[in-house]
């Protein structure tokens, strides 16, 4: 699945990183607690979160996460978007809630794929 597929499936708005929509995503993780995200390394993954602060982007940076999806229609401020832009991370925003967004991606074949 590509970042572009995720954007379409979640009817999401692209906030930055439009040029990386063709990046492949192999796994996903949905959480508002960043330490829970940091506990499991995944490759080429997408993070779905309701946490709309710079630490969501920094967590993605440390984990080499390629795309962050803000659920529940959250809109990050420009400083957050800029942080993601500098790190070549695609930011998406969807009106869907966490459960529904994760469910749609799961149904489309994306898995958690957590390696402990």
């Amino acid at each position: 699945m590509t970042v572009s597929d995720i954007k379409d499936l979640l009817e999401a708005e692209v906030l930055c990183g439009e040029e990386f929509l063709s990046n492949h995503v192999h796994t996903a993780c949905g959480s508002d607690m960043m330490s829970d995200v940091l506990a499991y390394v995944k490759d080429q993954s997408v993070l779905l979160t309701g946490l709309c602060n710079p630490q969501a982007i920094r967590t993605a940076e440390m984990m080499d996460i390629v795309c962050v999806v803000f659920v529940r229609g959250k809109q990050p401020d420009e400083a957050i978007v800029e942080l993601a832009r500098e790190r070549h991370i695609t930011l998406l925003s969807t009106e869907l809630r966490m459960f529904a967004a994760c469910g749609i991606l799961y149904e489309a074949g994306l898995r958690g794929g957590a390696k402990s």
Binding site: D32, M33, S35, A39, L51, Q55, A56
Partner: peptide, 17 residues
Amino acid sequence: IRSLGFGAGMGIPNMKK
């Protein structure tokens, strides 16, 4: 702190890991 996305009690376990 929890509202900022931290405080799940995974900090030191993650460092160890």
